[in-house]
Amino acid sequence: MSRPKATANTSSPQSPDLRSAENDLQRLRGCLRTVAEFIHDPAVDFAARHVLAQRLGLPAPTPTPAARQAKEATQ
């Protein structure tokens, strides 16, 4: 008896390794989302958020008006 071929319309059972990799990827995406939310949280010190974004290669946060004023005052 031959096994039916998997097509786009039928689902095939996933290997445990593939399922594990997909779970790891989902967990990493959740971590990245959490870090991005932290980086763009204006309640956290701007300099710390900016450095973290740089170190992780993520887009830099936009300074809040208060952070811009403090930065301009130190220049």
Rank of each mutant, 00 (worst) to 15 (best):
M1E: 13
M1F: 02
M1L: 10
M1S: 10
S2G: 03
S2R: 09
P4K: 10
P4S: 12
P4G: 01
P4M: 06
K5A: 13
K5L: 15
A6I: 12
T7N: 12
T7R: 10
A8D: 09
A8R: 09
N9S: 15
N9H: 04
T10M: 01
T10S: 14
S11M: 09
S11P: 01
S12G: 12
S12K: 14
S12D: 10
P13S: 13
P13C: 04
Q14M: 14
S15C: 07
S15Q: 13
P16L: 15
D17M: 15
L18M: 09
L18R: 14
L18A: 12
S20V: 00
S20E: 15
S20T: 14
S20K: 15
E22L: 13
E22F: 00
E22P: 03
N23A: 14
N23S: 14
D24I: 13
L25E: 09
L25M: 05
Q26F: 07
Q26L: 12
R27I: 07
R27V: 05
R27N: 14
R29L: 15
R29G: 07
C31Q: 12
L32R: 14
L32N: 10
R33H: 02
R33K: 06
T34Q: 14
T34C: 04
T34D: 11
T34F: 08
T34N: 06
V35L: 11
A36N: 13
A36R: 08
E37S: 12
E37Y: 03
E37I: 04
E37F: 06
F38E: 04
F38G: 02
H40G: 09
H40W: 13
H40P: 03
D41M: 06
P42F: 08
P42E: 15
P42W: 11
A43Q: 14
V44L: 04
D45R: 12
D45E: 11
F46I: 02
F46W: 00
A48T: 06
R49V: 04
R49H: 02
R49Q: 04
H50N: 15
V51R: 14
V51D: 12
L52E: 06
L52R: 07
L52I: 10
A53V: 03
A53N: 07
A53T: 06
Q54V: 03
Q54H: 05
R55C: 10
R55I: 08
L56P: 02
L56F: 10
L56T: 03
L56D: 00
L58N: 04
L58D: 04
P59K: 15
P59W: 08
P59H: 11
P59D: 15
A60G: 01
A60K: 07
T62W: 01
T62D: 05
P63V: 03
P63M: 05
P63Q: 03
P65L: 00
P65S: 01
P65R: 02
P65Y: 01
P65A: 01
A66R: 15
A66E: 15
A66M: 10
A67R: 04
A67G: 02
R68I: 02
R68Y: 00
Q69M: 06
Q69P: 02
A70Q: 14
A70I: 05
K71F: 08
K71V: 00
K71L: 14
E72F: 01
A73E: 12
A73G: 05
T74S: 12
T74P: 00
T74L: 11
Q75G: 09
